[in-house]
């Protein structure tokens, strides 16, 4: 199936958000995730199963004024 992550289209096997973040070495890091316009709380990463067409935004903190 196909999902969009931070504007890039990616083909992945069906899996949980937690599993996806683990493959990207992002689990446990200071990030926040939005899925199809809604925030996914950290506590729900393992329950959310990614679906074809999902649009994810994964963000972190950087310097800014």
């Amino acid at each position: 199936m196909q999902i969009s992550v931070n504007g890039e289209v990616e083909r992945i096997e069906p899996q949980s958000l937690e599993s996806y973040l683990t493959t990207k070495s992002l689990l446990g890091r200071r990030i926040a995730v939005e899925r199809n316009g809604d925030i996914v709380p950290k506590s729900q990463f393992s329950e959310v199963i990614l679906e074809d067409g999902d649009v994810l935004e994964i963000v972190h903190a950087i310097g800014g004024g």
């Binding site: 992550v5 963000v59 950087i62 310097g63």
Partner: peptide, 12 residues
Amino acid sequence: MAVRRTNLGQNP
């Protein structure tokens, strides 16, 4: 601080 997209290929 600012909030920006995480670089998915970054060094953990």
